[in-house]
Nucleic acid binder design. Structure first.
Lengths: 127, 127
DNA sequence: AATGTTACTTGCTTATTGCAAGTAACTTAA
DNA sequence: TTAAGTTACTTGCAATAAGCAAGTAACATT
C-alpha cells in the first residue's frame, strides 16, 4: 500500500505537510515514538485510545510515507517494532511548538515535560 | 455554535492542540490569514480549493475556539472580515516548522518564502 | 486443555468531507 | 430596467473516513 498523495492539493509546503500528517492521529503516534514507545500494544495503550483499525492503517501510511520504519523483533509469530526515520524525527520541532501553543492557550492542557521541550531530533533516531 | 471539545481525548498538550486544529483545513486558513487574506472569497480563491461548506464550518469553529475573530466591514448586506487573535497568531511558529519540515522532506513542495519564515506572531495582529 | 497475550482484520454504523446546486442581498453593464 | 454578475453563504446528497465490536492467527502460560 503506497499512500503518498499522487497529487497534493497544492505545492505549498504547509499544504503538502498537512496532506501527509494533517489528521487527528498521525502526530499522536509520532509523539509516542518520541517517547520510545515502539510496539503495537504500546500505541494502543496511550490515553487517547486509538481504535485498532485506525492504528494499523496509520502505521501503514506513516511507513509508506517514510516517516516511520518497522523492524521485526521476533520471528514466530512475526512481530514488528516501529520507530522514527530521520524524516519522522524531524517532526519533533513541529510537535514541540504545538505542545507549547496548547499549554499557553488551552487552559485544560497540561504543561509539556521539560525533557520533551529540550529534546532534539537526533536524540530520537537509532536509540 | 460552540465547538470547543467538552472533553478532550486527553490533557496531553499535543492531543488538545490536535483536537482544535488537527485537520486538513484549519491551518490552511490560519496561513491565509497570516498572508492578510481576510474575506470569504479570499479563502475560497486559495490554490487548495476548499469546499464552501467546509470553509463556512471552519470559520465558525475557529471563531468559536478563539483562534480568529470576525468584524463587519459593511452593513448592507452584512459582511465580515476574519482575522487572527493572539491565540491564532501564535500558531505561526507551528506552521513555520511544518513548512520547514515539508521543504526539507517532501521533494514536491516549494520552499517557504523568507518573509514567512522570518515573520513573528506580533506582526500578524491588529494589522 | 483452557486461558491469555499480541497484533492484527473484518463487518457494520456513524460522522465527516466534498461536490453541486440553490439562495439572499446587493452591484454593475446593456 | 432588466439581466447578469458578485459575495457569502446554506442545503442536499453521495463518497470517504472514523469508530466500535467482534473475530482470528499464532503463539505462551497456567
Amino acid at each position: 500500500m503506497n499512500t503518498e498523495p499522487t497529487n497534493y492539493r497544492s505545492l505549498c509546503p504547509l499544504s503538502t505537510a498537512l496532506d501527509l500528517i494533517g489528521d487527528k492521529w498521525s502526530l499522536i503516534l509520532v509523539r509516542d515514538m518520541c517517547m520510545h514507545k515502539s510496539k503495537y500494544g504500546d500505541f494502543q495503550n496511550s490515553q487517547e485510545a486509538i481504535p485498532t483499525n485506525i492504528l494499523a492503517n496509520r502505521l501503514r501510511k506513516l511507513e509508506s510515507n517514510g516517516i516511520i520504519k518497522k523492524r521485526p523483533y521476533q520471528e514466530k509469530p512475526i512481530r514488528y517494532e516501529y520507530f522514527l526515520t530521520l524524516k519522522g524525527a524531524e517532526l519533533l520541532p513541529v510537535i514541540q511548538q504545538l505542545a507549547r501553543w496548547a499549554h499557553q492557550h488551552i487552559p485544560e492542557s497540561m504543561p509539556p515535560p521539560d525533557w520533551f521541550l529540550n529534546a532534539k531530533p537526533e536524540d530520537l533516531i537509532k536509540s
